[in-house]
Amino acid sequence: MGRILDDTDRAIVNGLQGGFPLTETPFADAAAKFGIGEDELIARISGLADDKLLSRFGPMYNAERLGGALSLCAMQVPEARFEEVAARVNAHDEVAHNYARAHALNMWFVVATEQPEQKDAVLDEIRHETGIEVYDFPKIEEFFIGLKVEV
């Protein structure tokens, strides 16, 4: 990491992972608890985001509550075809994240669609384009989702 966080940065990252005020001047209202002013809070969040220490700042939406579908999917891709299959999978806009993982099921990705019925269609397209089975792991129960990062 190319940046050393000072105590105030750390307090912001740890203390502002939720609860950003829904008020007319939220930065001014949030800044008080960090002992800084509105302008400084804006500048620090902006700096943390520019340095990629934050992936985002704002509302985190729950895709499923928006009426769409979201699922974790996995494929068992032969090593020789890995790059080609990754490119085919990633070419779908509905694929939000995709990770190579060390396992027989070596490609794991998240598919999010705006209409629930689109999800199966996307998985079928990927099966058809690659000739490889796509295993679908839709959530049955959510026990926690969040980033309890302490820096």
């Binding site: 939720g18 609860g19 829904l22 934050l54 992936s55 704002g58 985190m60 939406y61 729950n62 969040g146």
Partner: peptide, 11 residues
């Protein structure tokens, strides 16, 4: 619950 929370999303 459409929004989970509002704030910084650490990388």
């Amino acid at each position: 619950g459409i929004i989970r929370r509002i704030g910084v999303v650490p990388n």
